[in-house]
Simulated scan of single mutants.
Amino acid sequence: MSGTIDHDTIVSAVVDILEKAQTTLPQDVIRSLEKAKERETAPVAKEQLEAILRNIEIAGNRKVPICQDTGILIFFVELGRKAVIDFNLEEAIHEGVRKATRSIPLRPNAVDPLSRGNTGDNTGQGIPDIKYELTEGSSIKITVAPKGAGSENMSAIRMFNPTEKDRIRNFVLETVLNAGGKPCPPIIVGIGIGGSFDKAARLAKASLLENTEDMTEEERMFLADINSLGIGPMGLGGRTTALAVHIKKSHCHTASLPVAVNIQCWANRHASVILGGDE
């Protein structure tokens, strides 16, 4: 039947996209790093970017993770409303994660928030984090975006008064400046404006999936401001503190203005697969 997708297909697809995301980077990210290397004039900054690009090349050739921090696993699932699913989709994704943890392999990163007990397989209560969106058609698109702690820990959210929109720029710059070299720059900066407390954060994180070479004029202005900070690759100074800035917005309450900044390291890892669909 058109649109029917089985359990094993999901499991295998999750393993495949996890391997791709962990061992390679999207071409737009690589091109942005290459362009940054050409622009850099500081020898140390250029050396850091050369080392990053060499690391990417070695990881791809050897099929090993780009970074030892293979992150917590964030999934974005676009579910066609005509897709036929007669199994537990979430459990299938979890099974794929467990298999990928063993086969790639991935560092076990999922721990209890208080006891710090490690499940050993990158699954647990609420992890992996799966975000669902209903779409038209009968296909399922699954995107995985591993997120390391070094960059995630530097992210921030602030609930502004609606009259304080002129403070957004300073908040973004303050967040990046306070992060310094900790998130392994050059970074990608995702900004979520509007919605609710959690919606702004979700918008900021989702924006990290956008093409690093495709920015609006507003986003390029933020990028120029961030790069003027001079933090540079790995925090050692230089012209490239960030590769890209992406902004997503949502309508919000008349009395509220949430703003979230989600920072991603240079290893902006993500990969997708589309399953099923009409013949």
Rank of each mutant, 00 (worst) to 15 (best):
Gly117Trp: 04
Gly117Ala: 13
Asn118His: 06
Asn118Val: 08
Asp121Lys: 12
Asp121His: 10
Asn122Ser: 08
Thr123His: 02
Thr123Val: 15
Thr123Phe: 07
Gln125Thr: 11
Gln125Glu: 10
Gly126Cys: 03
Ile127Val: 14
Ile127Asn: 09
Pro128Asn: 03
Pro128Trp: 02
Pro128Met: 05
Asp129Pro: 00
Lys131Ala: 05
Tyr132Asn: 01
Leu134Tyr: 14
Thr135Val: 15
Glu136His: 00
Glu136Arg: 00
Glu136Ile: 00
Gly137Asp: 01
Ser138Glu: 14
Ser139Tyr: 08
Ile140Arg: 01
Lys141Asn: 03
Lys141Met: 12
Ile142Phe: 01
Ile142Lys: 00
Val144Phe: 01
Ala145Gln: 13
Ala145Ile: 01
Pro146Gln: 03
Pro146His: 03
Pro146Cys: 03
Gly148Asn: 06
Gly148Asp: 11
Gly148Cys: 09
Gly150Glu: 07
Glu152Gln: 01
Asn153Ile: 10
Ser155Asp: 07
Ile157Pro: 03
Arg158Asn: 08
Arg158Pro: 00
Met159Phe: 15
Phe160Ile: 13
Phe160His: 14
Asn161Cys: 09
Asn161Lys: 14
Thr163Lys: 15
Thr163Ile: 15
Thr163Cys: 15
Arg167His: 11
Asn170His: 13
Phe171Ala: 07
Phe171Val: 11
Leu173Tyr: 02
Glu174Tyr: 09
Glu174Leu: 07
Thr175Ala: 14
Thr175Val: 15
Thr175Ser: 15
Leu177Ala: 12
Gly180Glu: 02
Gly180Arg: 07
Gly180Ser: 06
Gly181Lys: 05
Lys182Met: 05
Pro183Gly: 11
Pro183Lys: 13
Cys184Ser: 06
Pro185Trp: 09
Val189Gly: 03
Val189Asp: 00
Gly190His: 04
Ile191Phe: 08
Gly192Thr: 07
Gly194Ala: 10
Gly195Leu: 02
Ser196Pro: 06
Phe197His: 13
Phe197Ile: 13
Phe197Tyr: 15
Asp198Met: 08
Asp198Ser: 07
Asp198Gln: 02
Arg202Lys: 13
Leu203Met: 11
Lys205Trp: 04
Ala206Glu: 12
Ser207Phe: 05
Leu208Gly: 14
Leu209Pro: 05
Glu210Gln: 08
Glu210Gly: 00
Glu210Ala: 14
Glu213Gly: 14
Asp214Pro: 00
Asp214Phe: 12
Thr216Arg: 12
Thr216His: 09
Thr216Gln: 08
Glu218His: 05
Glu218Met: 08
Glu219Trp: 08
Glu219Thr: 07
Arg220Thr: 08
Phe222Tyr: 15
Leu223Gln: 00
Leu223Trp: 02
Ala224His: 04
Asn227Tyr: 03
Asn227Pro: 04
Ile231Asn: 09
Gly232Lys: 12
Gly232Asn: 10
Gly232Val: 01
Pro233Thr: 12
Met234Ser: 02
Met234Ile: 02
Met234Ala: 07
Gly235Tyr: 13
Leu236Asp: 03
Leu236Ser: 03
Leu236Trp: 10
Gly237Ser: 05
Gly237Lys: 10
Arg239Met: 12
Thr240His: 00
Ala242Asp: 06
Ala242Cys: 11
Ala244Val: 05
Ala244Tyr: 06
Ala244Asn: 04
Ala244Arg: 04
